[in-house]
């Protein structure tokens, strides 16, 4: 199972490190990362593989969200299918 993590907020030191640390603890493999700046907002997207996930999906979601709060950014994790199904036939 793969998911997309999006991080939206103001850029600062330690964003990628903070999110990646949560993922590493949960045994989640990062497949791809891309980042961009949109209307002054820093946007980072990660495609991750959840096959080795050692906790519940909702637990991971909670941990990412609270890490986001700590770093002052919005963090979302959504199953990859939602993006695929909306845009690809």
């Amino acid at each position: 199972m793969r998911a997309v993590i999006t991080v939206i907020g103001y850029d600062r030191v330690g964003l990628i490190a903070g999110i990646s640390a949560v993922l590493a603890e949960s045994n989640v493999n990062i497949l791809d990362i891309s980042q961009t700046t949109m209307q002054d907002l820093f946007t980072m997207m990660m495609l991750v593989d959840l096959d080795g996930l050692n906790i519940d999906f909702s637990e991971l979601k909670d941990r990412l969200e609270s890490k986001g709060k700590e770093l002052g950014v919005d963090v979302r994790i959504q199953r990859e299918e939602i993006f695929k199904s909306m845009h690809r036939i």
Partner: peptide
């Protein structure tokens, strides 16, 4: 693999 535009639009 990641299409930023599609993800942000959704």
């Amino acid at each position: 693999m990641i299409n930023q535009y599609e993800i942000l639009e959704t």
